[in-house]
Design a binder for these strands. Structure first.
Lengths: 205, 205, 205, 205
DNA sequence: CATGAATGAGCGTTCATTCAT
DNA sequence: AATGAATGAACGCTCATTCAT
């Protein structure tokens, strides 16, 4: 058993490597076999370790899943921060959100499929709340962005909450949609999806 | 004891009634306790029958879930066929799809929540494919409708596949979104969502 | 899984029989292998059933142990109610408590050894409290009896709480002590132990 | 790495210190968390060492527990050897045994609680026998003392084995009984308990 | 000497499914 | 047609012990 719940700082090199390896194996297992089949035994088999070692490093399955989500979201957030070019306006911002997300789904399909699996699974209550808090934060940010765009007259006067629902739903299902298509169409797919929401937001035609 | 899963035709009246009862209990269990907690024992308890009877009538859990989805989709399809008034055009048709679906989510929350639960769960492969085939049919219908609308010049020239992805995603998440809001806002919610996709499709502003 | 937590009344004949069988097997396992080795697998092996069946009938291990204690204590209490002859005084009452208990240990060694094992084990908190409440009740009864005996001048003025501690300790260890001796000495053992506490209580010599 | 469990003689200074440190941590863990929760990981955490080091120094858990009991009993025996004043007779000797033990329970509660925990736990057979042998030795000594007291006419003619059972039981449960009471009553408690057994032994009143 | 990562058996519990009644 | 007792595999988790470093 892991004697303490060390914070990131004071983990040994080996421990860090093992944790990464286990998180990676968990992502693969979840993405390829589904959340409900991603048991410690199966995850451990993928990592060629014993199941007990997962508990040793993560204490509970809840912790492991939390780490899986954290790992994926950290990389996703980094990717979503967008390119270095300054925004040319709210429509440009909206387009970048969509294309950024879809492009990431295309380039990291396993992570994003695993993310979808986990988020739609029956999680322990504490984790459920953790996820809900994260979702709320993301929603609030987007609602704020849309409202601001309306104030600047770039967006038509829709209900930002409803728009956010639709956009989040589309982005959440993106991993699946993208997976159905050949890689060479992913760029076009991202542009089309961005067009759709830009159109819906501006009504400019 | 007699192996079952007869085809619809040669089922006795009693057998049909039992099957309906079990399907109803399963929907309630899935909606209220989540798919992963909807075990035969819990479903049977809700129907005040023994767990063995479920297997007797459905042979496997997979069959029961198939029936649950069939039951919900049949009712949903019937409701979605739209009112008796003739369509006033493709935009009107699109709006009716959205409002019809969202309104149904508002009026039959349990069924739709259960549907969401099942569709996002890790189903056995055979059932997964069954669902996928059903999805494909629905998608094809919508894609056809959108293409037709473009041919008539009512819709702008977006990619109908991408549009369908976004619309299906939004409709799939509707049960949750609707559940977050007070009942008196459901009508407005449906209209806002319809506006959003009408705008995206027509680009008329 | 056992659909409900039926009360004693409405259990089927078969269920009652199984529960008794399991409780009996659990007592044997605890007495012969010790509490910590009395796992569901071992108990089930003694009863020639599958481990899952224990959970089916008792839901949790805590419930099973509670039932084990209840079963033993019910029989012990019945045996301790004493013979039909009226008490001849407080000393006689005290002697009967001791001889009754020791005699029961001699005639039902397995039950009493199991009881000792369970009561001295690390139980789940809820069960621990259940046991503590039972203990307190027994102690209070004995303290009351001793105090009354002092009021009537039959007992010398010792501290009844301390006396109760010593008596309970001696009775609790009786299963072990009795087990160390051949059966033909058990009667004499009970009388000697009764003498000891009678002497300590009366100081009469 | 080198197999260990050397005999006392050829242990280095450091090794002795480590063993003492581990034994102390084990006693604290057992007393505060219960025997069944006193795993190597928890004991090691208290000693701020790694769990592997315990095995290194003691080879098996059984050895560690053996050492724990030896450590406690050695200190207890030293304390029980009684004060420097010469015994004033057998009753005085008996009283000193009781008050000495109870007083030690009051002044070293952790050790004595740990001892109780260990002795009432399900130990490996070999250790069980080790403990039994130790018990037998203590019992024999007490039986001899009581018999001698009877020969000198100071004690009434009870069965010394039975008396020893009762006295050992009372002393074994003393840690718990004492812990239930406020510190200022411990002296009176010891005296009351001594009175009880003196009375039972002499019958003088 | 000491670490702590790693193992593998065992734990209580859940569950779809079977089957004697 | 229906019951509900029974199974056995799988689950997350704990632990004494091992061993490469």
């Amino acid at each position: 058993m892991q004697p303490v719940d060390r914070t990131d700082g004071d983990r040994s090199f080996i421990e860090d490597a093992r944790r990464r390896q286990i998180v990676t194996a968990a992502i693969a297992a979840i993405a390829e076999e589904g959340y409900s089949r991603a048991s410690f035994v199966r995850i451990a088999a993928r990592a060629s370790i014993s199941p007990g070692l997962i508990t040793y490093h993560f204490k509970t399955k809840e912790n492991l899943i939390r780490e899986v989500l954290g790992h994926i979201d950290a990389r996703l957030d980094r990717a979503m921060e967008g390119g270095p070019e300054p925004l040319e306006g709210f429509e440009d911002g909206l387009r970048r959100i969509v294309t950024g997300h879809v492009t990431y789904c295309a380039s990291h399909p396993q992570e994003m499929v695993a993310r979808r699996e986990v988020l739609s699974a029956a999680l322990p209550p504490a984790l459920q709340e953790h996820v809900a808090r994260g979702n709320e934060a993301g929603r609030a940010e987007l609602v704020g962005f849309l409202t601001e765009g309306q104030r600047h007259g770039e967006f038509r006067p829709f209900d930002p909450e409803v728009f956010t629902d639709a956009l989040f739903a589309a982005l959440s299902s993106a991993p699946r949609s993208v997976a159905r298509r050949p890689a060479e169409e992913h760029g076009a797919y991202a542009r089309e999806m961005a067009d759709l929401f830009a159109e819906a937001a501006t009504g400019r035609g």
